[in-house]
Design a protein around this nucleic acid. Structure first.
Lengths: 350, 350
DNA sequence: AGCGTTCCCGTTACCGCTAACGGCAACTCG
DNA sequence: CGAGTTGCCGTTAGCGGTAACGGGAACGCT
């Protein structure tokens, strides 16, 4: 942990007997350097272990090759997956990641956070915080002209002026519900996530639409509110069987709650899937080893993260090229499609 | 997503009719500014939304207030917890986080990664990658004098010259095994993690020590090698019951594998905990909702992350103060202690 | 009155790097 | 053989901020 000082371009130039500009040309791989000189300078660079100072470079070029990423809840499956996707793609495209975690999504100091990222000179910002409550009101604000491009990931609530990448959560609800119905279920219960989450509301909508299209009831008695935890899933089933005794299937809005539901079903002596079919969401690694193996809806979360980086990179380039052209194309919105994974917790289609 | 240019200190100074130096004094809260002037400048700053350019500031001061964090496997419970702890503490102490994820812990280009972080001018580096194979050989190298302080988190393999924060994994093995023994078990099987992980080897050592201290056998027939996945835990139990028919307890090196073990036990018709006691490690959120609720060993991972930031901050300050003093104190090593969480998958102490 | 302080503020010189430009050879070509 | 390339390299001037120093005005003190 010694404090060996890093060499500067000036020292490299002196050692090579050239000007700093020539060294600069070498490290940026620009023309107008004699092959022989090029070799010699590169030699010295690797000997001294020189690497350019990003501060100085950023100062002249006005870019940092860094993306600000604001995320929430790494302990949850979704967010950590998205972050992994972001990091991977960012590394591939040549961006560093400046990570900021939010702990209270509802009452974050959004402007302060964005300002601090901007003052760190990030080239763009990815807002990967779930759409909870009105925590995205800022993104709809008229005066939301940020000094750098901002991209939203996950959730699509509001008429945001910003670009966004999301997953079709209503389709998740429909996929799960229609699968349950096709397996013969007629009384499909729902354990929701927290209702201030956009994802929860959309999944519920999908569930409701599917039932209504078939003329089946979708009353409040078939709904239990959860909070994503297995505990709440367990409590949810106890509540459901009381409110709707003829329940024969449950769509749990995530795999943890599905686990809780199955736990409760075991305690109640209801066999899965014969007496009760269960479908979750997320396809967490453990899902295939639940008892029984859980049928679930898989979300392309990693892809969403990767796509976010590519889109943001595009926006950065465009903003940089236009510099003061028209603000151009409306913010693009992308919605990725989920996929059903059928296992043993649901009755198969006959 | 407009590209409104950010104001500079020069513009603020012009607007206030003072020199840039005076503005600089205001934003750094330094003396020698008349209260009235101070007010006026601050007014203009908030009106224009000025915030200092970190590049320029970093260039003169030689620090970025950024910590480089290298992590691996956010999809695993441990690493994501540690990262959360790091981020939280970093935010509290005033550091930003530059995140780098590794995908192949065995064959990462360590020097390249460190160099890239250093060239980004991070003030210090936290290496939060599990100790797998010989991927930490670099940290023992004699010439490991990095331009910035480096701290290792998790794992304690080798005689690293660098400071480190870890969790006592041998104690994990002992806690789990002794709990099983105190519940009456006499034939304790082990499902390990991958054996090139330091954590796995230490947990196995703890298991072995506990058995040998009581004069109980700890043969290879009681061991099945897993890979952290639930699948491997399931396969592990099948293997164990074949190799050691009188098996009455299993220590699984993480909760996922414990889940697999319980899954297999159900299939084999072995009742838990009466016929087979099971203990896991990690205390993941779902553990209390497994069937039955899983007894496990809790690791203070978030604390480890937080502590890492504080220690690194100290090292940074010291390095900065000494600047060329002796390299001083030997790298401190901290070992945090795990904690047993008793639930229903293990027979209680009579 | 004369001198030293204190308060407040401006000047200058960098930090490390790159864009823009200029300039000197050698080389090409009609 | 003179004029226009082309190849190669250096000089200058910043990017936006801060450290170090200096200096004028007002004040206090003997």
């Amino acid at each position: 942990m010694s404090a060996r000082r890093r060499p500067t371009i000036k020292e490299v130039a002196a050692a090579a007997g050239v000007s700093t500009q020539t060294v600069s040309r070498v490290i940026n791989n620009r023309p107008d350097v004699a092959p022989e000189t090029f070799e010699r300078i590169q030699q010295i660079i690797s000997e001294t272990g020189y690497s350019p100072n990003m501060f100085a470079r950023g100062l002249t070029q006005g870019r940092s090759h860094t993306l600000g990423v604001v995320a929430y809840g790494l302990e949850y499956f979704g967010p950590s997956r998205v972050l992994t996707g972001i990091e991977q793609q960012a590394a591939a495209v040549g961006y560093a990641i400046s990570l900021n975690l939010i702990h209270e999504p509802e009452q974050a100091d959004v402007e302060g956070l964005l300002a601090s990222l901007v003052s760190r000179q990030v080239d763009g910002i990815i807002w990967a915080v779930p759409d909870v409550g009105d925590n995205r009101a800022w993104s709809n604000a008229a005066g939301s002209d940020h000094p750098v491009p901002v991209l939203l990931v996950g959730g699509m609530g509001g008429q945001s002026l910003l670009g966004s990448i999301g997953i079709d959560n209503r389709a998740i609800g429909r996929l799960a519900t229609e699968h349950l119905l096709s397996g013969g279920a007629r009384h499909v219960g729902l354990v929701t996530g927290p209702m201030d989450w956009w994802e929860s509301r959309e999944r519920q909508l999908g569930w409701r639409e599917s039932l209504q299209e078939r003329g089946l009831p979708a009353s409040d008695r078939q709904i239990a509110n959860g909070d994503w935890s297995a505990t709440s899933g367990e409590a949810g089933l106890y509540q459901l069987v009381e409110q709707a005794p003829d329940l024969d299937a449950v769509f749990a809005s995530n795999d943890q709650m599905a686990l809780g539901v199955m736990h409760a079903a075991h305690r109640l002596g209801r066999r899965i899937p014969d007496e009760l079919s269960v479908v979750g969401v997320d396809n967490i690694a453990e899902a295939s080893h639940f008892w029984p193996a859980l049928t679930t809806v898989d979300q392309p979360l990693r892809d969403a993260g990767g796509l976010a980086v590519r889109e943001l990179d595009g926006a950065i380039r465009r903003a940089r090229a236009a510099r003061r052209g028209q603000d151009g194309a409306p913010a693009p919105r992308t919605l990725l499609q989920p996929k059903l994974v059928i296992r043993e917790s649901s009755r198969p289609t006959p």
